[in-house]
């Protein structure tokens, strides 16, 4: 098993490198809208489009050969010198460090709430399969998944922000992090995100729990007269916990991946989602690579930890030969 873990870790490094290279290559071949805009302006006001292009490339260091630029970027990535963000005029590390807390502050409560609620609804609906309350619970979970996030967000804003005035319309980044004001303005985004993510957790836990609902030992427990709560916690939750744990480990690591661009846009939260999206739009190469690295790293590590957790937690799985 140790050999398996080592191989997985090595592979995670290689995968990260591959993804960064591909990202870099794609950015290199894509025309830059800012450069074109500048050329067009120059031509429209009687200047020379070529000169404008040269000036732009000189400023962004694009006048060197692709191979030199690629080497430089990759070296910088490794040495944690992630470069200068052209579209924000600040070091990439600083940009990411500034955005990360805003993502965390809504995604941590979102993740915790959706795991708790999702588990509860999933277990409930597994033990009460095909009853009216099962339908109601399932419907509630699916409701959140099916309603488009962005649309739901705007409607909530209109009703509770503009009409009723209960919550502020625009996210105010000036409010201290752990304050009532911050909690208040996070209510709507968290509600939108939790309703959206509950369905996934609920589906998993329901499926896992269902495996044991019909199991012989549960039936035995039932016939012995164990009450519903005891059956649920002792006989269903316990065996189901192993596979659930592995999913949750991935989920918790994925907290930062939960950065939802749509929700950040609708509520105006300056988090990682907006950061990476705007970086792509502006073709800010250093920033795109920096944010891609963060996302890639988290999901590669998330996969890794999930797989390793699975081998550790579930003795039935044998990775000896793979």
């Amino acid at each position: 098993m140790r050999w398996y873990v080592v191989r997985r870790v090595l592979w995670a490094v290689v995968a990260t490198f591959l993804i960064l290279s591909v990202t870099w290559g794609l950015l290199a071949v894509t025309p830059n809208p800012a450069a074109e805009q500048m050329q067009f302006q120059a031509a429209a006001s009687g200047g020379s489009a070529e000169a404008a292009e040269e000036a732009f490339e000189a400023r962004r260091g694009l006048d060197r050969s692709p191979w030199v630029r690629y080497q430089e970027y990759m070296t910088n990535m490794v040495t944690l010198n992630w470069g200068w963000s052209q579209s924000r005029s600040q070091p990439v590390i600083e940009a990411i460090a500034a955005a990360l807390p805003y993502t965390a502050i809504y995604s941590v409560p979102t993740t915790i709430l959706s795991i708790l609620l999702g588990l509860a609804i999933g277990l409930y609906s597994a033990t009460n399969q095909y009853t009216k309350s099962d339908y109601a619970a399932t419907f509630f979970a699916f409701f959140g998944y099916a309603i488009p996030n962005f649309w739901f967000g705007i409607i909530l804003l209109l009703v509770f922000g503009v009409q009723l005035g209960w919550f502020p319309v625009v996210f105010d980044s000036d409010i201290p992090f752990f304050s009532l004001g911050m909690a208040r303005q996070l209510v709507l985004p968290v509600v939108v995100l939790v309703t959206g993510t509950i369905a996934g957790v609920m589906r998993y836990s329901r499926a896992e729990a269902l495996e044991y609902v019909e199991a012989e030992f549960v039936k035995t427990a039932k016939s012995k007269g164990a009450d519903g709560y005891r059956i649920l916690t002792r006989h269903i939750l316990r065996p189901a916990a192993v596979p659930l744990m592995t999913i949750l480990v991935g989920d918790i690591l994925g907290i930062f991946l939960a950065a939802s661009y749509l929700v950040e846009v609708v509520f105006g939260i300056p988090g990682l989602g907006q950061l990476s999206y705007n970086a792509i739009l502006a073709q800010d190469t250093s920033l795109v690579l920096g944010t891609t690295l963060i996302f890639t790293f988290v999901s590669v590590v998330g996969n890794l930890v999930q797989d390793v957790a699975y081998t550790v937690l579930d003795p039935r799985i044998d990775y000896g030969d793979r």
Binding site: L158, G161, V170, V265
Partner: peptide
């Protein structure tokens, strides 16, 4: 900076 138009206009209205 409010990129979403409906949010921007909502902020003006409120």
């Amino acid at each position: 900076v409010i990129s979403e138009e409906s949010t921007r206009l909502g902020a003006l209205e409120s």
